[in-house]
């Protein structure tokens, strides 16, 4: 298999005022040209997974275990110049808030040009031409004029496009997208999703797309990994997850999406709240909220049970149904 990214048993622990076990054994592989969505609620470890892929977590307070291989290279061992060359041409990231990701004191064109000059050694005129080309590719209207715009002169949707242009300027093989459409209006969100889908196909890159919105995952992803309390509870193609959710948490999330919910009906809300993760989970982390939990669920962590290629569920109910 030509997996581009291979994450194996990744654990992340933050220390400080209180310890947080943010990731507790995450394994995930992403093929070349594949779009994988990490779906989960806040605190489930989606963003931490992305950030560890780029070594963006604060070094002093973070303890990382497990392995991340990018095209056979060990990402967690990269340092200094090697790491700088890895970020950009190999892996790029886009964020939820473009106004924090873009530099407010440089024009958009300058920021894109600087990136390609640094990474590809282009001359300034060539880099400027690349910047213009990128703005055209993300379909910013009148791109020549926009090159000299500062981030604050653009609307939210436009800034998001500019950030995508910046991230893709060096033609990365993997794009990490951390809720890039969450802060946008629904109409603009759909524009940006369609753009990302198009660019992904054009450039043939792999994408890991973090979202809490199952509807967004449907629009963009080939495969979905559902996360809960720093673990992956279910993976499958988007169609499998939507049409045949197996894990009780996935089922709850789908019900809470309210798609087609009728007025006045009572919602099947998942009771309670996610665990705080001050201790690493020793049992199924979802068991306290699970409507079908049994004694065994509180005793040990459920294994990830494979249900065919790319399909797995971390629930002991699945083990029984196999027997």
């Amino acid at each position: 298999m030509s997996a581009l990214v291979e994450i194996e048993d990744l654990t992340v622990r933050f220390s400080g005022e209180r310890t947080v076990h943010a990731l507790n054994g995450v394994s995930l592989s992403v093929e070349k040209g594949e779009v994988v969505a990490l779906l989960g609620e806040s605190g489930s470890g989606k963003s931490v997974t992305l950030k560890s892929l780029m070594q963006l977590l604060p070094g002093k307070r973070t303890k990382i275990g497990g392995k991340i291989a990018f095209d056979g290279r060990d990402v967690l061992k990269l340092k200094g110049r090697e790491l700088a060359n890895f970020r950009g041409p190999e892996v790029a990231m886009i964020f939820q808030d473009p106004s924090l990701a873009l530099d407010p004191v440089y024009a958009i064109g300058t920021q894109i040009a600087e990136t390609v000059m640094r990474h590809e050694g282009l001359s300034r005129p060539d880099a400027n031409a690349r910047a213009l080309d990128m703005l055209k590719r993300v379909r910013i209207p009148s791109p020549e004029r926009r090159l000299s715009n500062y981030p604050h002169e653009m609307s939210g949707g436009m800034r998001q496009r500019a950030m995508i242009a910046l991230a893709l300027a060096c033609g990365p093989r993997l794009l990490l997208a951390d809720e890039p459409t969450t802060a946008l209006d629904a109409t603009v969100q759909m524009q940006v999703l369609l753009l990302l889908r198009e660019l992904q196909q054009e450039m043939g890159m792999s994408v890991i797309f973090v979202t809490h919105d199952i509807g967004v995952a449907v629009e963009i992803a080939d495969r979905v990994a559902v996360m809960y309390a720093g673990t992956i509870v279910e993976t499958g193609t988007i169609a499998e997850i939507i049409k045949d959710p197996r894990h009780p948490y996935t089922k709850g999330l789908l019900a809470a999406n309210l798609h087609g919910a009728v007025k006045g009906a009572r919602l099947d809300a998942i009771p309670g709240a996610p665990p705080t993760l001050e201790e690493p989970p020793t049992s199924c982390p979802f068991a306290p909220r699970c409507p079908v939990a049994m004694a065994a669920c509180h005793a040990a962590r459920p294994p990830l049970i494979s249900k065919g290629p790319g399909r797995a569920v971390a629930c002991i109910l699945e083990a029984e149904s196999v027997l």
């Binding site: 939210g156 629904a186 969100q189 759909m190 199952i214 509807g215 449907v218 798609h259």
Partner: peptide, 24 residues
Amino acid sequence: AALFSAMPSMDPDARTQVPPLAGD
């Protein structure tokens, strides 16, 4: 109509193909 068509389809076989509205 545009607002409603901007809702994700929830069907992977019937993804949105055309943006509901251009621009901001």
